[in-house]
């Protein structure tokens, strides 16, 4: 199974995410992650979806989503041409004697310590999902108490903007 990152501009209305997640479920596509936010234009929100599937699934899901009235623009975020970022918060058990090691890890990964208690620390790390995966593998032995990831979000490089694309509903 391949992973594909799809980005879309949506009408900023209630129920839009339900339409999208419902479409994935009923057409048997798998969402790896979904990350939604408001944008500079209050009429639109933006969503980044990671799909796990094959080329056929990618093509179908993109076209089916494009048909939704509330999906305004949609595209595949090309690996070589986009910036992908995800944010991780991870709470680790830290006895006093392991704290030094943690600081070293933090420096290597350019993570931040955003909370510290006598027994725990919360680390924050932003980066490509693979970097977050790597970091998690390294901190695993210390004991992860809980963690949260935002899911990947993406923008294409250079002048290209999602807003410049043509919506399917303008073509018919």
């Amino acid at each position: 199974m391949q992973k594909y990152t799809i980005t879309a501009l949506l009408a900023n209305k209630s129920g839009v995410l339900t339409r999208i997640s419902g479409l994935f479920a009923r057409r048997c596509f798998n969402i790896e992650s979904i990350c939604a936010c408001t944008t500079e234009d209050e009429n639109f929100s933006r969503v980044t979806i990671v799909l796990s599937g094959d080329e056929h699934a990618l093509s179908q899901v993109t076209k089916q989503l494009d048909k939704l009235i509330d999906v305004k623009k949609i595209t595949l975020a090309e690996e070589h041409d986009s910036i992908f970022r995800e944010l991780l918060l991870v709470k680790i058990r830290t006895a006093a004697e392991t704290r030094g090691e943690l600081l070293t890890l933090r420096d290597i990964y350019k993570a931040k310590i955003v909370d510290l208690s006598p027994t725990t620390a919360i680390l924050e790390l932003t980066g490509e999902p693979s970097k977050l995966d790597g970091f998690l593998r390294v901190v695993q032995p210390y004991g992860i108490l809980e963690m949260a990831r935002t899911g990947v979000t993406a923008l294409s490089r250079g002048e290209k903007c999602l807003n410049d694309l043509v919506d399917y509903n303008e073509l018919i």
């Binding site: 056929h56 179908q60 494009d66 048909k67 073509l171």
Partner: peptide, 9 residues
């Protein structure tokens, strides 16, 4: 077809 999603479905 008028529906792009019907192509190759």
């Amino acid at each position: 077809d008028i529906d792009a999603a019907e192509i190759d479905k």
